[in-house]
């Protein structure tokens, strides 16, 4: 029942993109997403598409993996395209019964479809090539300057680390509870919706009770090892930018600048 859940979608590897500093990947991803959002010229789309192909190549991603990343989104992608095709007013190209497909609709629908696809690919590339732990470290490092504004960067990162650590443990525990309840005749996967939801109660109550007990013991264990909220922690793994990272950051910055330039002066 729960075995299908995997944590994130990280695929380990040694590609160019894998070896980038995680902060570079987050920043570049943010810049490219912004570029996608401001882009409105064919030349801009061409640049972005080229950048996407380069990134996919640099990550060594197979076309099949790209398709499997896009598959869960196909309904929303098709729906957007169809809605734009039929409901954008303008010059009618051809008609399907009472509905008219307009030229403007085709252009707009195509643009939005392509934008969404690029957004999905960029953000998936980030999570496909970066382990959750590295993402946490990168967020901590990127948020550090905001500490003066009262953003608790260290504590946020600690929370993410602990969440990542305990998800597999809680899943194991949930499976144990399910087995224990099933061996006493509980049925989780039959009946109508209300019955199924009600069937979850004997699973969730012990799971939450267990989680609270764990949390208390974990807090003790952390205190034993001198964890103090707000104290200055160090990190064993230091993140370091290399030449590779500067190249990628400059590249992503150039793409962003180009789309901005095309939008306002092109």
């Amino acid at each position: 029942m729960l075995s299908g859940i995997t944590l994130g979608q990280y695929v380990p590897g040694r590609s160019f993109i894998h070896r980038l500093d995680p902060r570079t990947k987050i920043l570049a991803c943010a810049m490219l997403i912004l570029a996608v959002l401001v882009c409105n010229r064919p030349a801009g789309y061409a640049i972005l598409t080229l950048g996407t192909l380069l990134a996919l190549g640099g990550a060594g991603t197979s076309p099949r993996l790209v398709m499997s990343v896009l598959r869960p989104f196909w309904i929303i992608l098709t729906l957007t395209l169809v809605l734009q095709l039929f409901f954008t007013p303008g010059l009618a190209l051809f008609a399907l019964g009472p509905l008219h497909v307009t030229r403007e609709g085709l252009v707009l629908g195509g643009q939005i479809l392509w934008r969404l696809t690029l957004l999905i690919i960029f953000s998936s590339l980030l999570t496909l090539t970066t382990s959750p732990l590295m993402l946490t470290a990168a967020l901590e490092s990127l948020l550090k300057p905001l500490k003066r504004l009262g953003v608790p960067a260290f504590d946020l990162a600690m929370m993410m680390t602990i969440a990542l650590r305990f998800i597999p443990t809680l899943l194991q525990e949930a499976q144990q509870i399910i087995k224990a309840q099933q061996s006493r005749g509980a049925v989780f996967s039959r009946g109508g919706l209300t019955r199924r939801v009600r069937g979850l109660v004997p699973l969730l109550v012990p799971l939450f009770a267990g989680a609270f007990r764990r949390a208390e013991e974990l807090a003790t264990a952390m205190e034993i090892r001198c964890y103090r909220v707000g104290a200055n922690r160090t990190r064993m793994h230091q993140l370091r930018y290399s030449r590779r990272d500067y190249i990628v950051l400059v590249g992503a910055g150039a793409v962003l600048a180009a789309t901005f330039a095309l939008r306002w002066w092109g």
Partner: peptide
């Protein structure tokens, strides 16, 4: 060291967990 090993490990990688204490002390990497 406490009784239940599952409830006293904080990180999702072995060496990161061992590093937790010294990191809290603010030692150099």
């Amino acid at each position: 060291v406490l009784q239940n090993p599952d409830n006293q490990l904080v990180a999702s990688v072995v060496e990161e967990d061992v590093a937790f204490g010294p990191e809290n002390l603010g030692l150099p990497p």
